[in-house]
């Protein structure tokens, strides 16, 4: 059983190509993390699944139903937290949840749901006075109405503090344990890594990788994070940074005072050190970390020459 099936979907806005022949499948019962930098086409994809926009070409199906003609049945079985959605300023939190319950013909207790997302004490307050984080929690409460088979969450951690983001992940896990399929997007890898069964990475309207977290890690050439401490900052530091970034196999370079943090493939390590010394500074110290997923993500999604080979 597939929960979401996107096949050959192209979406064009005027001359701009937002999605280019996207294929993506979310299996029933899994937690699928949809990753990509801002502007990669994540929200476009989700808006297509929600039938907020229509594809230029291709086919989008949810529960093997057509998103357009069967939108009511899909909605009845789906909880949605859309990106950029706002609430009704003049209605209270409880009224929002009651409206969702009535709309879905469900029999949930609004206060229980508000309690679950941690805003029970603001239930009687108008949503216009809610903070961003509270609004996000309220939206989540409405998404949970009626024990949906599928939860579609677009950047669910927006506006949440680390504690709130953790609670969000807990709810995602609980819902999945109950049997719900979860499809959620993020541009922050840390949130996806912790809960996802599978991850898809979108860049420039293409799915450039799709695998389990471990699978992704294994598919990468061994990544290293080099921390190189220099005796001083080179005079032509901008040129130096550029020179290092252009080395084949390097995906990112971050200066931190006299220390350079370089994410690169193992094979590029010596070249990096040599190139640094070409700029008239000496390396006082260097250490290497294991590849972190963050580097992996950067390698996948950055535009540097070094990552191009990785993607294939």
């Amino acid at each position: 059983m597939t929960a979401i099936d996107i096949s050959g979907v192209t979406k064009r806005y005027g001359t701009e190509l937002a999605l280019d022949g996207l294929d993506l499948t979310v299996e029933s019962g899994e937690i699928y993390g949809f990753l990509g930098p801002n502007g990669a086409g994540k929200s476009t994809t989700i808006n297509l699944v929600l039938d907020f926009i229509r594809p230029t070409r291709g086919d989008v199906r949810v529960f093997d139903l057509d998103v357009r003609s069967d939108s009511l049945e899909i909605r009845n079985r789906t909880g949605i937290l859309p990106e950029g959605a706002t609430l009704y300023d003049r209605l209270t939190g409880r009224q929002h949840v009651e409206f969702a319950i009535e709309s879905k013909a469900a029999d949930d207790d609004p206060d229980e749901l508000l309690e679950r997302v941690g805003i029970a004490d603001a239930a009687g307050k108008k949503a216009g006075g809610y903070s961003k984080g509270m609004a996000q929690r309220l939206m989540l409460a409405t998404a949970l109405v009626g024990e949906p088979d599928l939860l579609i969450l677009d950047e669910p951690s927006t506006g949440l503090d680390p504690n709130g983001a953790r609670e969000m992940r807990e709810i995602i896990r609980e819902e999945n344990a109950r049997g719900a399929t979860i499809f959620f997007s993020s541009h922050v890898l840390g949130q996806v890594e912790a809960v996802c069964d599978r991850v898809g990475i979108l860049r420039d309207g293409h799915l450039i990788a799709e695998d389990t977290i471990d699978g992704l890690r294994n598919s990468m050439p061994t990544q290293t994070r080099l921390r190189v401490t220099l005796d001083r900052i080179p005079d032509d530091s901008a040129t130096a940074l550029e020179a290092i970034e252009s080395i084949d196999g390097v995906s990112s370079v971050e200066p931190e005072g006299r220390t350079l943090v370089v994410a690169c493939e193992d094979r590029a390590k010596t070249t990096v050190l040599r190139r640094i010394e070409d700029h008239g500074v000496s390396v006082e110290d260097f250490e290497t970390d294991d590849s972190s997923l963050e580097d992996l993500f950067v390698a996948y999604t950055s535009n540097s020459a070094g990552s191009a080979g990785v993607i294939q």
């Binding site: 929600l50 907020f52 939108s71 009511l72 909605r75 009845n76 949605i80 937290l81 859309p82 950029g84 959605a85 706002t86 609430l87 009704y88 409206f99 969702a100 709309s103 879905k104 939206m139 409405t142 998404a143």
Partner: peptide, 14 residues
Amino acid sequence: ESGSLKFLLGLPHR
């Protein structure tokens, strides 16, 4: 304009 339409249409309403 405000975005609340996405909330509304996210629920089972055509």
